[in-house]
Amino acid sequence: MQRVNMIMAESPGLITICLLGYLLSAECTVFLDHENANKILNRPKRYNSGKLEEFVQGNLERECMEEKCSFEEAREVFENTERTTEFWKQYVDGDQCESNPCLNGGSCKDDINSYECWCPFGFEGKNCELDVTCNIKNGRCEQFCKNSADNKVVCSCTEGYRLAENQKSCEPAVPFPCGRVSVSQTSKLTRAETVFPDVDYVNSTEAETILDNITQSTQSFNDFTRVVGGEDAKPGQFPWQVVLNGKVDAFCGGSIVNEKWIVTAAHCVETGVKITVVAGEHNIEETEHTEQKRNVIRIIPHHNYNAAINKYNHDIALLELDEPLVLNSYVTPICIADKEYTNIFLKFGSGYVSGWGRVFHKGRSALVLQYLRVPLVDRATCLRSTKFTIYNNMFCAGFHEGGRDSCQGDSGGPHVTEVEGTSFLTGIISWGEECAMKGKYGIYTKVSRYVNWIKEKTKLT
């Protein structure tokens, strides 16, 4: 034993070699072989497995989906700052455009905790909710729209109204504003409101030439003092309507412009014939205590009207009353817009006519005020429907199939267009061939041609 100890002390290297040989010859039971080890760690190889990531292109799944990435790591994937920024906006807080917040056709661009709407022409605001041009839906104005110097929408209202708090709607500024039905039992019968379409306001006024200088022999019209197929109006439903009495009662109609003036057809009036105007009328054979009678003290036909040349060209006249009318729910003026808007309103496509005229061709006159909704007829169809001249200051309205029309005794009465609950004068009943005849239409004086003249002559002093 002493000898062994001496050998170990003198030859430590020998001992180490012996131990190493023993270990190498022993069977290893701690580690699995290569094949079995792979069965336990069965993990798919990654895209760049075996390579240094710093030297390969980034992978979106590896960089940002398996674990949260930084902007720089995302930049490695896209290799483009702009594309990385677009991805980053949604990656950080989701897609803010998912709810489609942009209105009126706006395009949404996502941002971090926010979004941006790219608005089409005519709109602005956070969600493109603000109209900035009158060309689109009248700028959301209830009545009139004008573009300011910086191309912003400025709404306005006709006389007797003021802008509401929203700067879009119009509200009454006087007790009985024009064009409004205020009798409670008839307010439910107000005709369907007309909503502004998209309009090209630059070209809204037709490029028409008034044929002022045409000389033409007097034409022989049949029954051209021209509501057939209409309905009984309720008291106060058309408070701007008046009836004219002269040699015979209810020979023509008219509309209240203001307390002192009536507008009617020029062919209705004769110099030297006494005319009485009755406002607030409903049943011409009954006294309903809503009527107001006034005498006409002055007749002003349009300066281009000449019955000797043509009885229905420039067929418009103004009547001055001896005493002002007292405005109330049964006696209310009709609204008159400017030339541009009167023309736009007419193009809405349908209007209402009213009167006490004959209820059928050569038949009896109506006792109760009649009204009828009539569609506008395109000019080409209008011209083809008659052998008589249709001037540019006239328009056609009615039904091709016949059966409904204005008729004798309705002449001078109103053709009105309702705009968001307020009625505007767009025409004056003038003439036609018979009444409600198939293929024939009622012919009306186009008020847009005469609004400046009306307003100039009827100013209240």
Rank of each mutant, 00 (worst) to 15 (best):
M6P: 05
I7A: 15
P12R: 08
G13L: 14
G13D: 04
I17V: 07
I17Q: 02
L23C: 06
C28S: 12
F31N: 15
L32R: 09
N36C: 04
A37Y: 10
K39P: 13
P44E: 15
K45N: 11
E53R: 05
F55V: 15
R62Q: 15
F71Y: 08
E72M: 10
E86M: 13
F87D: 15
F87E: 13
W88Y: 15
V92R: 11
D95P: 08
C102P: 00
L103M: 13
S107P: 01
Y115T: 02
K126C: 03
C134T: 03
N135Y: 06
N135Q: 14
I136V: 09
N138H: 06
N138A: 06
N138D: 04
F144Y: 07
C145S: 03
K146H: 06
K152C: 05
C155M: 01
Y161G: 01
N166E: 03
K168I: 11
P172H: 05
P172C: 03
V181G: 11
S182I: 08
T190K: 13
T194V: 12
D198E: 10
V202P: 14
S204A: 05
D212P: 07
I214N: 08
Q216C: 06
S217M: 12
D223S: 12
F224G: 11
L244D: 00
A250R: 07
S255C: 07
C268Y: 02
V269D: 02
I275P: 05
T276M: 07
E281N: 05
H282E: 03
I284C: 04
E285A: 07
T290S: 11
K293I: 06
K293P: 05
K293V: 15
I316E: 00
L318N: 00
L321N: 00
L327M: 12
Y330W: 12
V331L: 02
T332W: 02
I344P: 02
L346A: 03
G349D: 14
S350F: 12
V353R: 09
H361T: 14
V377R: 05
R384A: 12
S385Y: 15
K387A: 10
T389W: 13
N393P: 02
A397F: 01
G398H: 03
F399S: 12
R404P: 15
G409Q: 10
G412P: 13
T417F: 02
T417C: 03
S423Y: 15
L425V: 01
T426Y: 00
T426A: 00
G427R: 00
E433I: 05
M437K: 11
K438Y: 06
Y441P: 11
I443M: 10
V447W: 01
Y450L: 01
V451F: 03
N452S: 15
K455N: 07
T461G: 07
